[in-house]
Design a protein around this nucleic acid. Structure first.
Lengths: 136, 136
DNA sequence: TTGTAAATCGTAATCATTATTAATTAGAAT
DNA sequence: ATTCTAATTAATAATGATTACGATTTACAA
C-alpha cells in the first residue's frame, strides 16, 4: 500500500483530501514498524502544535475500516501499520528489539480446521514475537 | 487447576488464605470462559458491597504470576481463566457467541521455525475465534 | 464566489488499570 | 488465648489510552 493507492480508496469513498490525512499517511510510508497514536502525535505536533488526538484516532479508525492500515494490540495499546500489498493471506513476525516486522509465508488455518471439525472459524490471531537476525 | 491446587501454590509461596481470594478462585471454577476484572466485581459486590478494584486486580496479577490463571487480551480488555491442567502446550478456540473455549491440540510453532530461520522466537499468540458447534 | 457537509481543534468525558494511604486481618509467636 | 506484625484490603485518587462533543475551519462542488 502506498499513498496514491490510499487516496484512491479515500476519494472513492467520498473522503476529502486534507493536510492532516496526507501527513498521517506519509508517516506510515516511512516505517515498517507498528506505531501508536501517540507516536503519530509526537511527529505531527512539531509542525502543527495544536494537533488534536481526535483527528488522529478518527483517521486511524477510518484508515483501518477502509483497509489502508492494519491494526494490532501490543501490550495494551493499539498499534498500526500500512496494510501489506501482498495478495495472499499471511502473518507477521514482530521483532521486540527493533520493532521491524517480517512476513511469515505460512498460515496454520488449513491444518487447524481439520483438527476441530464442527467449529466455525470466523477469525484468528497469529503473531510471533522475538528477535530478528540483526538484533540477535 | 482446581481450588485446592491453587491454595497449595499460594500457601507454598507464603500467601495468606483470605475470603476474597477464595471467592475469586471459586468464580473461576464455575466457568470455562475468559472473564474480566469487572465480571468478578459484579459477582462479588453482591456479597461484599464495598469490594475494591484494587483487591481484584492485585490478586488476578498474583494468580497469573503463579500460573494459577491464564490471561489474554480480548478487544482491549484483559480476560482471565483458570490455567489448564494439560501438561502439554496448547491453544484455544474461543466461541464468540457463548464465550466457551475449546482446547486446540495443535501448535504451529514447530513448523514455523523452519519457515523463518535466523529469527529467534520468544513468544507467540495464537487464538481462534468463531462459533462452537452448539452455537452454530 | 458561495454554500454546505466534512474535518479539525480544544477540551472534557470515559474506561480500564494502577497507585496510595489508612484501616483491617491472618497467622505466627508469646 | 492474647499480642504482634506483615500481609491484605477498602476507599479513593491518579494515570494513560481512547472516545466524544460543541464550536470553528476547510475542502470542494455548484
Amino acid at each position: 500500500m502506498n499513498i496514491e493507492k490510499a487516496w484512491d480508496i479515500l476519494k472513492n469513498e467520498g473522503y476529502k483530501k486534507t493536510d492532516k490525512r496526507e501527513q498521517i499517511l506519509s508517516i506510515f510510508t516511512e516505517t515498517e514498524k507498528y506505531i501508536t497514536a501517540k507516536d503519530i502525535l509526537n511527529v505531527m505536533k512539531k509542525e502543527h502544535p495544536g494537533m488534536s488526538y481526535d483527528t488522529i484516532y478518527r483517521n486511524l479508525s477510518t484508515f483501518v475500516n477502509l483497509g489502508i492500515l492494519e491494526e494490532t494490540e501490543l501490550t495494551g495499546e493499539k498499534h498500526f501499520r500500512m496494510q501489506c500489498e501482498a495478495d495472499h493471506h499471511h502473518h507477521h513476525f514482530i521483532c521486540m528489539s527493533c520493532g521491524n516486522i517480517k512476513e511469515i509465508p505460512f498460515c496454520p488455518m488449513e491444518v487447524l480446521q481439520n483438527a476441530i471439525p464442527g467449529y466455525e472459524i470466523e477469525n484468528h490471531k497469529f503473531e510471533i514475537y522475538g528477535n530478528c537476525p540483526s538484533c540477535h
